[in-house]
Amino acid sequence: MHINVKLLDEIIAGAIKEDVGTGDLTTMSTVPEGAVTEGYIYAKETGVIAGTWAAERVFQFLSHEMQFTYRKRDGDIVEPGDVIAVISGPAGPILTGERVALNLLQRLSGIATRTAAITNMVKGFNCIIVDTRKTTPGLRALEKYAVTVGGGRNHRFGLYDGILIKDNHIKVAGGIANAVAMARAKAPHTLKVEVEVEDLKGVCEALEAGADIIMLDNMDFEAVSEAVKLINHRAQVEVSGGVTEDTAAGYARAGADIISMGALTHSVKSLDISLDIREIKIRPRSQEAGVRS
């Protein structure tokens, strides 16, 4: 999955504005003029790294003099103490950008780590793990990217690129059959129609209506197994609603083609990552960028 650089810069600009505001008072008052430094970004727990390029972009956004050396790449597994990257350059911008860079790196790595753990649980089954739209406002593209780093796949990105008829749509439309028929009449022929159902009666109605994907919402293993038999490959089967690490394999075993989990992004624990300054030098004014000797 490719992240648009312009979008990334907009996210970073907003995050820096939120954190720095009119200026980093602590750094401006304590960092000597001309100070240059080297910082090590390292893991404090085991996990899958994601978002290294986002962290790099934060520092580059603050100063064009930054040098970012990768020791790990997105998708790599890290252990406590592993160095992820080395950042060198003006000390002020490094200290100012530290929290924004780490926030992005920690969150995306946490998402990748949890996704990897769950995808490993369904290995051996013909089933994929996908995310949902339950993402942090403004960070959807980055969080969905992190899911792919962890081995998962993306569900629709927004309301604009997929049809998913949920319970409230069904109520407003006057039933599953009406909802699917109206969607078919207006949607491009290349677009699949997905319907969310809560019981076997809904499964039968969705099948009769010609749904391409049937989402089984909050059903137990036995109900999912029965639904899979009813559907009999006439539609793809997606399971959603309260799926956890403890239940994912059971749903895959019951015959789910797709398991969607909002928990991949909405309640994930960030990976513990830190930055330590290792060396400080004071650069003569004649060597500072923009100062002539």
Rank of each mutant, 00 (worst) to 15 (best):
D246F: 15
A249S: 13
D131C: 09
S267D: 03
E98R: 14
D19A: 05
S240Q: 06
G92R: 11
L95I: 01
A248W: 10
A235R: 04
R133M: 04
K6A: 07
A227L: 14
N103F: 02
V193N: 10
I273M: 12
D246E: 15
M182G: 06
A91R: 02
V203E: 13
E65G: 01
P90M: 03
V228I: 09
K123R: 12
A101K: 00
D161Y: 09
A185W: 10
Y251V: 04
I163V: 15
L191D: 04
G21F: 12
E226A: 07
P284E: 03
A235N: 05
T244K: 14
A235W: 05
A185V: 01
G21K: 06
H155M: 10
K72E: 00
L191C: 13
M1N: 11
V48A: 04
I118T: 07
I213Q: 09
M1Q: 10
D74E: 09
T69C: 00
C127H: 07
E98N: 06
D276N: 15
I163F: 13
H266Y: 14
L275I: 09
H233M: 00
R107F: 11
S286A: 15
E245M: 13
G242N: 09
V193P: 10
L275F: 15
G158A: 14
V180G: 10
E38K: 13
A181E: 15
R283H: 11
M219E: 01
I41S: 03
E143M: 02
L164G: 05
A112S: 09
G152E: 05
K72C: 07
N4T: 00
I111C: 01
G110S: 06
A187S: 15
L95W: 03
G39F: 01
A50P: 08
A15D: 08
